[in-house]
């Protein structure tokens, strides 16, 4: 953050964004007093571009572009360590969920680590939409294809095969159309296409 942020503009333009995050996450983001307890205990903060407390600060100040494009929100592993220790009762893990969801809905372009995390989530959910359950092999192959590293984790796959820990065919849920409908209706409500 080398350029100075114009806070008057960001607060004016992105007031709706701040409200939206508060409302959708159900979290009182304005309560945060920037003590840093979340950052202190975050297991993945070392890999983030912005530490967790700063992600929240950016929300407070309406720095929408920066926060939605950040690597940090995708690197959050959802462990809720921050949530359990926050002295202000802000569930930061929920805020992170909400920011990822907003980034996705708004079609924010992602790169690097964030792109990989998002891609993995998509591949995972695609197999759930198709089968009603996770299909691990299908997910891995699809992910490798999309990240153009066909043989990534091939050794792992082999080792799992010998321990009978991978199935070639997907396990399928009985009324799996029900599950596909869930995806369909969520998209309908959130207003985006597959």
């Amino acid at each position: 953050m080398s350029v100075a942020f114009n806070l008057t503009n960001s607060l004016k333009d992105n007031f709706g964004f701040i409200n939206n995050v508060s409302k959708e996450s159900g979290q009182p983001v304005e309560q945060c007093y920037q003590c840093g307890k979340c950052t202190a205990g975050c297991p993945v903060a070392f890999a983030m571009d912005y530490p967790p407390h700063r992600v929240l600060r950016m929300v407070q100040l309406g720095l929408k572009e920066n926060v939605l494009r950040s690597q940090a929100i995708w690197l959050c592993a959802g462990c809720s360590t921050c949530t359990s220790r926050c002295p202000r009762n802000v569930d930061l893990a929920q805020v992170m969920d909400c920011l990822r969801s907003l980034a996705k809905r708004e079609g924010v372009p992602l790169d690097d680590r964030a792109r990989d995390v998002s891609l993995f989530y998509d591949c995972f959910l695609n197999t759930v939409e198709d089968n009603g359950k996770l299909y691990e092999l299908g997910m891995m192959l699809n992910y490798n294809l999309k990240t153009r590293q066909l043989f990534k984790n091939a050794n792992t796959g082999l080792a799992m095969l010998t321990r009978n820990k991978i199935k070639f065919l997907p396990a399928k849920t009985k009324n799996r159309r029900d599950v596909a409908m869930i995806f369909q209706r969520v998209r309908e409500l959130e207003g985006k296409a597959r």
């Binding site: 959802g78 969801s101 993995f120 959910l125 759930v128 849920t173």
Partner: peptide, 12 residues
């Protein structure tokens, strides 16, 4: 069927 796991709540 799948509980949604982390990818579910993380994205919606």
């Amino acid at each position: 069927s799948c509980c949604g796991s982390t990818p579910g709540h993380s994205t919606s």
